[in-house]
Design a binder for these strands. Structure first.
Lengths: 227, 227
DNA sequence: GTCAAGCCATGCGGATTCTCATTGTCGAAG
DNA sequence: CTTCGACAATGAGAATCCGCATGGCTTGAC
């Protein structure tokens, strides 16, 4: 999942980036409105965290621009003051959620995850596919009732596939959502992680859930697929 | 827009109902968990406002039940205390938004509107032509109910024809769509792929769907075509 | 150090794509 | 109706691409 943080306080921004990266989000930073606008236009994010008080172009303007342009990415607004007026205005301008500073990192994390679930229209935090069970809240995975340990990267990949179950996801799509802009590679990491996932999730089970679409990408088995 | 408020404090519930009705919402009330569960099951709401502290069945349980049952209605959670933990838990259980008491009515209104604004229309990604079925999301093709495996090129060609069904597409059109480069090609790849497609899609079926327009190009059968 | 996670480079084999020569078909002119 | 040139369909093999597996290197946590 890829996140953009638009925040001029570099200390805070850096801390958030680090915290989120430990949770295996791919995080890009923008330190002012212009930069934020640019990055939001160029890349596709799952969530944008937006501070309202910004140099050059403020958050309200940014948000308004984005919505006018038809950007539908979920935006979580941060603001220093906690006045109801600001909240109301933010929500009416098209913010999807609101968080007052100071806040606990845990809460930001929970809200970001809630927005991501909302984006993918996953209402129930538990996704079931055949006998596979993904608890997106606890980040725990079971198959056939047995808990399977996944590394953060593996989990991130599986979750991404799960959010798109029944649809083909291309390697570039996966790449874009698992890695931030600094990474640029021609490697086959994605293939490698698919392999890791298969070993843990599909090996010894029927039917296989991770399907290869030759020349296109991968797909998590939907309702009724012929392999 | 129809809203359900599950809240045991009758004074507060009544005030909210009145306020929301002035804003032209249709509002139902439930004073305990059982009633709330019943109403949520029987009626279809656009938004449910859910207090966590409830008689009989508490809000968490309710929310969890709903999500397990596959209810996708947006839920806004109210809670008396503002502890981060409660917020986090609520959001992780599948709440779409959260509001701590006490709150300003204006803010509740803004959040309800924000939730309602999020109406994603899921457009049907499946194209049907006679007994041919193209699932553009899964990139899967069936004819007569049976899955047909197509290579990426074959699929791309079929999809292109399908998007122009009933209209003639020329070879140059196909060429430009399938290949980036401006090769002044003298090859007949397009013809070859038409052949591959016919073998997989038309062979053994009636009527043939891929038609040749002599001297012009090809066409996917529309509603009523003479071959 | 030790261990696990993350990442990269390489090679193989099968799937796919493309080329090309040949055969088949259309349709207008005579 | 026949003929002829242009266009379309076919078949097979060569060239290319792609997924997968594997082993090893790097990094960071403890």
């Amino acid at each position: 999942m890829r996140i953009l943080i638009v925040e001029d306080n570099k200390t805070l921004a850096g801390a958030l980036k680090q915290g989120l990266e430990e949770e295996r989000f791919a995080v890009d930073l923008a330190y002012d409105g212009e930069e934020g606008d640019y990055k939001a236009r160029v890349n596709e994010y799952d969530v944008i965290v937006l501070d309202l008080m910004l140099p050059k172009v403020d958050g309200w303007t940014l948000l308004q621009r984005w919505r006018e342009r038809g950007l539908t990415t979920h935006v979580l607004v941060l603001t220093a003051r906690g006045s109801t007026e600001e909240k109301v205005q933010g929500l009416n301008l098209g913010a999807d959620d609101y968080l007052a500073k100071p806040f606990q990192f845990e809460e930001l994390l929970a809200r970001i995850r809630a927005l991501i679930r909302r984006k993918h229209q996953v209402k129930n935090p538990i996704i079931r596919i055949y006998d596979l069970e993904i608890d997106t809240a606890a980040r725990r995975v079971k198959r056939g009732g047995k808990v399977i340990h996944l590394t953060p990267r593996e989990y991130a990949l599986l979750e991404f596939l799960a959010f798109h179950r029944g649809r083909v996801v291309t390697r570039p799509m996966i790449w874009e959502h698992l890695y931030d802009e600094e990474d640029e590679s021609t490697s086959n990491v994605v293939d490698v992680y698919i392999r890791y996932l298969r070993q843990k999730i599909d090996k010894g089970f029927e039917p296989p859930l991770i399907l290869t679409r030759w020349g296109e990408g991968y797909m998590l088995r939907g309702e009724e697929e012929a392999s």
